[in-house]
Design a protein around this nucleic acid. Structure first.
Lengths: 346, 346
DNA sequence: AAACAAAGTGTGTTCGAGCACATTTATTGT
DNA sequence: ACAATAAATGTGCTCGAACACACTTTGTTT
């Protein structure tokens, strides 16, 4: 009674051949009403699940998945993705899959385009894309789509009906989470939203986070805060921010919208004054150091590793087990302090 | 060149039959040194990965996994586990697996023992166990082991060399995380550690959390806190705790070590005084309500759903793909506030 | 040198789904 | 009524690993 039913079982029960059962199951037609009824009758009673293993053995096509992301040597933000990719590769290495990773220079559109061309030459079955340059991305996605190549994106969202799936975080919401954290640990005073320019980075990222952050305080009744937005650019971050701190002694909290919270932390830890609380993004080493020192209070974890991993697995499971690819996977917005950080690292 | 090598390929390359290759790969002996060399030579050059799909098709044994946990009707803490089990069942329903769930009454040892007997009768290949009663658990684990049934545990740790794997959280560490949170949001004053007795619950749970919590403050230099431990029992929680609050006006923070933070939250929200911060465990509805109202500041998420899910998947992957079962899977200690709670629920 | 055992090697079948193709049955036109 | 054609149905092979079993070669004993 535990046994899983096979096509053969159904055939026997229905008094037809496995070919007929197969045609019914796949709606391939060429089945008489009588036979159709008999098979459906059996299917109604038993609980048939095709054996995915057997199905897959037969279909031994090799699927090629290409992943495009910025070179982690240039921007370490992307390093955790490699672990996610690695996990997926290990998990699926016994299947007929080729998973290849390609880096581009996140500061150069040309590099992005060239990498995409190289990928196109391989005519993969799917690409997983970290879409940095908006216009260019839309173009390449259209190209992929016209060649019947599935496009999944992660980390950055891009408006295109040709994108099959997005894996990432709700940035607006993550801004709200940061706001709640700042609210919890300060209580009042002046708050600075700090955008540290990373030249190439899609400004929409930071804007969404700011919008979420401000919305939280807008909704809060009799809020005892004033909020200031600061746009800083390297290499002037230190000077500009020091000036700001001197001119605004009421600052109690700082929200850094990029991975560069450590730059602010460095300045603050030198700055002798009453405690200023800091919330930032991403568990890169420099940030964790200041988190452990108590200069940064909370980090929000964007889980790039899992983003990459889930981006791949949804494709693999689609190809191997014809699972549907979810249109959007929103990862939890993980709150990290000095005590739970290690669980989220690598 | 992308093609995966098969045993047949190796046989052809080595100039032997697939039977010989098979014997070499499985070290079944009965291979001449000459043939062995030839095959090994080929294996050295190419990168052979046996096709797990084919391997599995052949070995079509049905594996039975039984899961034992407290009845969620009696203790809703366990409800999320059902979702995790459900996910796993759905994911693997196409394989030769039977996954069965059994509930016991967490207040009655007898129920636990009886459920285990019922499971034993089914002679499963593995059981996944939420071990509540220490002595009884050790006994049944030994019994399972003697019958060659793999035992995985989750949520509660139990000392037994016969346990193959544990999935859960580091409770000591989670106490530290709570301490850091309280420290972040209060800064000084009196802190109460509140154990709300859940009669049957393994006291070790709460003790470990308290130990971690206190250790954090012990390590902190010139800490401006005093810490008091309170053991409350229903139905006297309300009276006792009100008395405590009246006698201790300096209380700034409360750490509730069980899922019952909402009981404390209820009392505090009626208690007109300066803000008292609360950190508790588990995203049950009552807690989330107070989290959204701002009475509870942070919850620590124990991710029962994922515990159950990972407990099952590690077994399934062991049976199906002979993956090793990790001895211990420690889940991250998720920090939850009102803004990110929804991502961790269900 | 024959007889026999032991060691080594190859062949063929199985697992379940899927599909091509062969075969049988039903339907149409003349 | 009998081809001719269409529709329905069944058979048999494939995928790759695993293993039973049959077969061949080598070695040992008398």
């Amino acid at each position: 009674m535990d046994k899983k039913y096979t096509i053969k079982d159904i055939a026997k029960l229905a008094g037809v051949s496995k070919g007929t059962v197969d045609r019914v199951l796949h709606k391939r037609g060429k089945v008489s009403p009588a036979a159709l009824d008999k098979v459906n009758e059996v299917l109604k009673v038993i609980d048939y699940e095709p054996n995915l293993i057997a199905r897959n053995l037969k279909n031994n096509k090799i699927y090629r998945i290409c992943i495009l992301l910025p070179d982690p040597e240039i921007d370490p933000y992307w390093r955790p993705c490699l672990n996610g990719i690695d996990d997926a590769v290990k998990e699926f290495k016994a299947y007929n899959l080729v998973i290849e990773t390609f880096y581009f220079n996140p500061e150069k559109k040309k590099s992005f385009l060239k990498t995409n061309e190289a990928v196109l030459k391989l005519s993969p079955d799917a690409v997983l894309l970290a879409p940095l340059f908006h216009k260019e991305t839309v173009d390449v996605i259209e190209k992929y789509h016209s060649l019947n190549i599935i496009v999944n994106t992660f980390n950055n969202q891009v408006e295109s009906s040709f994108v099959k799936s997005f894996v990432g975080q709700d940035l607006f919401r993550s801004g709200r989470v940061a706001a709640k954290l700042i609210d919890s640990i300060t209580g009042n005073g002046q708050i600075a939203i700090v955008h540290i320019d990373e030249t190439y980075k899609n400004a929409i990222h930071m804007q969404e986070k700011e919008r979420g952050f401000r919305t939280y305080f807008d909704e809060k009744e009799n809020s005892a805060y004033t909020i200031t937005t600061l746009k800083l650019k390297n290499p002037n971050v230190e000077i500009s921010f020091n000036t700001f701190l001197n001119e605004n002694p009421e600052v109690t909290g700082i929200f850094v919208t990029t991975s560069k919270a450590y730059q602010i932390a460095k300045i603050i830890s030198d700055f002798k004054s009453k405690k200023i609380r800091v919330v930032g993004y991403d568990l890169i080493d420099e940030n964790v150091t200041y988190l452990n020192q108590g200069v940064i209070d909370f980090m929000i974890h964007q889980n790039q590793k899992r983003q990459a991993y889930l981006g791949i697995t949804s494709l693999v499971e689609h190809f191997l087990f014809q699972k549907e690819i979810p249109e959007m996977i929103l990862l939890p917005i993980d709150i990290v302090n000095a005590e739970n950080a290690e669980y989220y690292m690598v």
